[in-house]
């Protein structure tokens, strides 16, 4: 089990338990084959759903409290939502470490289209690993960035169904439906 450190240790605004969060992060990491220390910083004040990787090595993640929240029960911890959030961040780290993403721009330089395409590829793989899913939600996001067209839908399916695409391939698939 990877070692996980969660900041803060206790929460004032939401009913989260850092030990439970640590367990969920460790479980997702283990399923992805990551066996190294992970630190996770949570901004409990924010109910939004943003998340980012602040360091790839060592692994340091940052999320809005809302990204771990149960959407049915505000302020309560949501396991499924957390698996999805953490899973997407960790699989992106794995992508970047694979050598297939060496020519990818830094996270902060990616535009919404590129993120939507990469996300589709990440979440498709996570779903097959039993972590997260919500295919239609991801497809809706993808369509918003790439168009409500058959071409865009075919591109989404390709991204979702493929295993281990390179950044160049993701870019090509995304660009093809943007220009069509």
């Amino acid at each position: 089990m990877p070692e996980v450190s969660v900041t803060p240790e206790s929460f004032e605004m939401v009913f989260y338990d850092s030990a439970v969060i640590g367990e969920v992060v460790a479980e997702v990491a283990e399923r992805l084959g990551i066996d190294e220390a992970i630190s996770l910083e949570i901004d409990e004040q924010s109910p939004l759903g943003r998340s980012k990787i602040t360091s790839y090595d060592p692994i340091e993640l940052w999320v809005d409290g809302g990204a771990l929240e149960n959407t049915q029960r505000p302020r309560q911890f949501g396991k499924a939502r957390s698996r999805d959030t953490i899973g997407r961040l960790l699989i992106r780290i794995m992508d970047r470490r694979s050598g297939r993403f060496d020519d990818a721009p830094a996270d902060e330089d990616l535009d919404l289209n590129q993120f939507a395409a990469w996300d589709a590829h990440c979440v498709g793989r996570l779903e097959r690993l039993g972590i997260g899913g919500q295919q239609k939600r991801r497809q809706y996001q993808f369509r918003n960035r790439h168009g409500f067209t058959d071409v865009a839908d075919a591109a989404f399916t390709q991204l979702w169904d493929s295993s281990e695409l390179s950044w160049t391939e993701i870019e090509r698939i995304s660009e093809e439906c943007r220009t069509s």
Binding site: E12, M13, Q45, P47, L48, P74, R75, Q141, N144
Partner: peptide, 27 residues
């Protein structure tokens, strides 16, 4: 909820912005 009231699929503590697809969390 000390974080503010939820509105229009967003939250009061969020910086106000017209709901459009162009927002990162728009969709």
């Amino acid at each position: 909820d000390p974080r503010g009231t939820r509105v229009a699929g967003g939250n009061a503590s969020e910086q106000l912005a017209k709901l459009t697809p162009g927002l990162a969390n728009g969709p």
